[in-house]
Nucleic acid binder design. Sequence first.
DNA 1: ACGGAGATCTTCT
DNA 2: GAAGATCTCCGTT
Length: 197
Amino acid sequence: MILDKDFYARNACIVARELLGTRLVHQVDGATLSGIIVETEAYTGLDDLASHGRAGQTSRNLPMWEEPGHAYVYLVYGMYWLLNVVCEPSDQPAAVLIRAIEPETGLDIMQANRPKVRQPQWTNGPAKLTLALGIDSRHNRLNMTDPTSGLWLETSKPIPDEQVTTGPRIGLGKQVPEPWLSIHRRWWIVDNRYVSC
DNA sequence: ACGGAGATCTTCT
DNA sequence: GAAGATCTCCGTT
């Protein structure tokens, strides 16, 4: 079942936790690429000083104010695309970063998209998984609750609390003040081979 | 195994 | 003009 707008229209921390174990699907050129989400990060409202949304709307972060379930895809370090899903009611600039997936289908295409690295490293990081799945600026602002977009999340296997743990978000600049720097807003599946670190 | 640096360019100060 | 929600390669241990 494809996750709908109601699923995403909740607090980003709840959505980040519940996204673990769901399936990310990308359909391209008649092929289906998919994997199970094993790691996420929540970026919450205007008060979250680690979030792109902290200073209000800009041309880049505009998708964060869009309807829950839309994609926010942006370029980091001049080189890599990161995939987020917008959540909460649209008066709050909140989103969840998809940090890692466990590949399921379309393995041959993922391998072609990730030459020079071996299987576990295809998708164990936010930029690695967009490379493997062929996600980039074309997917920015897509409605991920609409299957005709070719990009969506669907239910798969629920992950029990005993298999989930949390920690601080990864890669934040030293400029980010406490408590935002070390607050636990990253969720991952314990002992999963595809978690980024 | 671990650490440092380079790649590369958009966005915001 | 500087920094950024990263990854890979190359060096040393």
